[in-house]
Amino acid sequence: MEGVIHIPAGEHGVIRLFRLDMRPEQAVFLREPGALAQVLGIDALDMEQVEIFPVSDLEELGLAGYLTEGMGVPEEQITPDRERLAALEGHVMVIRSRAFGGREMRLTPAEQIKPVATYGTPGTSWSGAPIETESAKPYSAPKLAPRKARAEARRIGATLFAVVMGLVGLVLYLLVR
């Protein structure tokens, strides 16, 4: 099926750029609840993850600068499309993959919504060397003897009781005075 954009389940870190071939008031209307989802042929979309704006708003930053500096797209991905991005006029739409809520979707955009490019943002590397220190091992903190732990708890409780009773006494003194 031509014109269908498949969004896989669990997708993250993907930014899709679309050109909007429509009048400015139509582009602004897409920000209304449910309007964009309808023209994309889906049920729902998180509008917090969608941006619709005229390219002219970017002034000297330009669309390429916005994507690299504002959205974190690596420069290497933008370089081949730089001239094409600079030539875009009118309104554009940027959709982050978070807009789909991790669900699999098939977008069937209206004919006025033209896909321009898809970019990936680098993910966080959660890998690291294992921590070998003694203090990082489970249950490695020194254990208090039960008698010392009870004495510590009593001391903390007595201190809190004294502070609360002092505050109550102060409030009573100020009220009676």
Rank of each mutant, 00 (worst) to 15 (best):
Y66I: 04
H6Q: 13
Y139I: 02
P130C: 08
E76D: 14
T68L: 05
E59N: 10
L17M: 06
Q49M: 11
L167A: 13
S127R: 12
T118M: 08
R154H: 12
T108R: 14
L174W: 13
G120C: 09
Y66K: 06
R154L: 14
M165E: 08
T159F: 15
Y119L: 03
P122F: 10
R154A: 12
A149I: 05
G120L: 08
G34Y: 04
T118Y: 01
E111H: 08
A44K: 14
E25C: 03
G102N: 00
M105W: 07
T121E: 10
A99L: 00
R155W: 09
A145V: 10
G65I: 08
L144G: 06
M93T: 02
E111I: 08
P130V: 13
E2F: 12
R150I: 11
K137L: 12
G128V: 04
I113Q: 03
Y119Q: 04
D21A: 14
W126A: 09
T79G: 05
A37R: 03
A87H: 05
R19Q: 14
A141T: 12
P33V: 03
V168Q: 01
T124C: 10
D46V: 04
L172G: 08
Q112F: 15
E60C: 02
V28W: 09
E25G: 04
F100Y: 02
D46F: 03
I78S: 02
V4W: 06
R16V: 01
V116W: 00
L17N: 00
D81S: 14
Q49F: 08
E69W: 10
H12I: 11
R147A: 15
V50C: 01
P24T: 03
R23V: 12
M165R: 06
E104L: 03
E83K: 13
R154G: 07
L45T: 03
P54A: 05
L20E: 01
Q26R: 13
